[in-house]
Amino acid sequence: MTDNDQILGLINLRKSLILSAFIIAFSLVRPVLAEESINMEHKPDAPSFTRSTATYNVPDVAVIRQDGKKLSFIKELDDGRPVVMSFVFVSCSAICPMLTHVMSKLQTKLDQEKQQAHLISISIDPESDTPAKLTEYAKKFGAEPGWDFYTGTRAVSLSLQKAFNTYRGDKMNHTAVILMRSKPGQPWLRVEGFLSADAVFQEYSALSR
């Protein structure tokens, strides 16, 4: 072994000590961190959603519906019908398809029960989700009349997300939230997490009773 080899070896040993230190640090912190996010290891008995009631100050902003019409969001919201609302974006692959499927099934159920509600999906990626893209998205999920998709400027989308406390700093931080209200002036029921369409329908029915 040459001197150089020895020096190199010592330097590398030092590197290794530091690396090992963080590996040890990790093995120590890991168990604490395990609870922080919904991981693949999902607890079977834990409820997969939370519910709460809230009132929100909704800003009077102009939104654009999937048919390209520019409309007052407040008017869209307060047309007298009960409202079921979600925040989604077209290129989202995990949460939104799930939420939108649930909305779709809910619409079928509401139709069967001859109940009139306004289903609303608001884009949180508005610069990309043009009315044309939203129309296509609505079609993909079999949306019938009574279910509208809205986009607008980034500022408008942000103001709505903030108003309904769904803004999490970035679209990739968003969480699964469904908001329901039986009529204008009533508080909102907020369910967070993953519900089946049946569960959403039950929550909705309880609300309108």
Partner: peptide, 25 residues
């Protein structure tokens, strides 16, 4: 592990650190 030369391998071959290395890297 960048820069892991032969000298280094010889040095740590009997060392418990190696296990940690193998574990993670």
């Amino acid at each position: 592990f960048p820069g892991a030369g032969r000298g280094f391998q010889r040095l740590v071959s009997n060392c418990w650190l190696l296990c940690l290395f193998l574990l993670s890297l």
